[in-house]
């Protein structure tokens, strides 16, 4: 556990009396022990590290160490089934294999596809819903409450609910669409390769649009009402008001919501796993990594896949931060 650099020296983890001794020691060593503010600052810094220690320890254990371990294991050929592990060093062989693995690239493509369309529809729909809820009307509270329902339903549950609704023979979606004369014959939404991904995207849009709308709504409520009044006095039409006031002032919240949603969507697991399992037409990066790691038990190659995902997300975050900086300038 050499990774925990942040912890204060061990004599500080004890009782208050011990801590006071430590404080005194530290003031003894300092060249100017008389300056009370200085020692107070040092003591407060130590207290802060002490308060942070448990959280840091946990995060080192559940985040930093396993991440390091994943990188490390990706350089080995090792099975998950044998404990203790018996790794064989293979260098970058796993990455070479990953680079030419069509199933991996298919999963990357599926994930990007899923992310692009779900985030796109969530943003557009979320903006419309936010604008609706932002205006004054009777029943506004009811809509706001209803918006939390899809958000609160567990991902696994909403996937199962929609899977049943998408059922080709007994599903309510085919029934409704036929009653509305949008389709003439039932569609096998989850069996037809062309429709599975759109169906999954529809589930994600239903579940996550409210979250988007809530964030955009908070952004809308942060815009001073005086701006609209001034615009009205100057004779600006509602459309002009939207493009000249709402849009520019909403952009910061929109960007934040976009990055969070995109990151979330790139990690997609539950929905696709429940609705379509690991079939190649819809498999996502996360499902592919888990399949290699756990179902196939190849800890080495699976770790290379997981590292690949990590790198793709890191690239995305870096690109986003650079773009944001450019924007600020």
């Amino acid at each position: 556990m050499g990774g925990i650099r942040f912890q204060p020296s061990s004599d500080l983890t004890g009782s208050r009396a011990q801590r006071e001794v430590a404080v005194q020691q530290s003031t003894d060593i300092k060249p100017v022990p008389r300056v009370r503010r200085f020692s107070l600052a040092a003591w407060r810094a130590r207290t802060a590290w002490l308060f942070l220690a448990p959280s840091l320890l946990i995060l080192v254990l559940v985040a930093a160490y396993p991440l390091f371990r994943t990188f490390q294991l990706s350089l080995f050929d090792v099975s998950i089934l044998k404990f203790p592990l018996q790794p064989t060093w293979v260098g970058f062989d796993n990455y070479v294999a990953l680079f030419t693995d069509p199933r991996w690239w298919r999963s990357v493509w599926n994930t990007v596809n899923f992310t692009f369309f779900s985030v796109f529809f969530e943003t557009v729909l979320g903006l419309i819903i936010a604008l609706i809820v932002h205006s004054e009307f009777r029943g506004r509270g009811l809509v706001r409450t209803a918006m939390l329902v899809p958000w609160a339903i567990p991902g696994v549950v909403s996937s199962q609910m929609w899977r049943w609704m998408f059922n080709d023979v007994y599903g309510v979606i085919n029934d409704l669409l036929m009653k509305l004369r949008i389709i003439t014959a039932p569609v096998a939404w989850l069996a037809e390769p062309a429709f599975v991904m759109p169906a999954i995207i529809a589930i994600d849009v239903w579940k996550t649009t409210p979250f988007m709308a809530l964030i955009l709504l908070a952004g809308l409520q942060g815009i001073p009402k005086e701006l609209y009044e001034a615009a009205r006095v100057d004779g600006a039409s509602p459309v002009q008001q939207f493009w000249r006031i709402t849009w520019p002032l909403l952009r910061p919240s929109l960007l934040v919501a976009l990055i969070f949603r995109t990151l979330d969507a790139l990690r997609v697991f539950d929905m696709i796993y429940i609705v379509a399992g690991s079939q190649v037409e819809t498999i996502s990066m996360s499902i592919y990594a888990r399949q290699q790691l756990i179902s196939f038990g190849s800890l080495g190659y699976g770790s290379a896949v997981a590292t690949g995902i990590f790198l793709i997300l890191a690239m995305y975050i870096t690109a986003y931060l650079v773009a944001l900086k450019v924007e600020v300038k």
Partner: peptide, 27 residues
């Protein structure tokens, strides 16, 4: 740095620690 590291951890793909975490909790 600690504050921003915490932020970074929330954006973390949990799949990228799955293998390492599996080995850790096994041991």
């Amino acid at each position: 740095p600690i504050y921003y590291t915490m932020l970074a951890v929330t954006m973390f793909p949990s799949i990228s620690v799955l293998g390492g975490l599996f080995v850790l909790i096994r041991s």
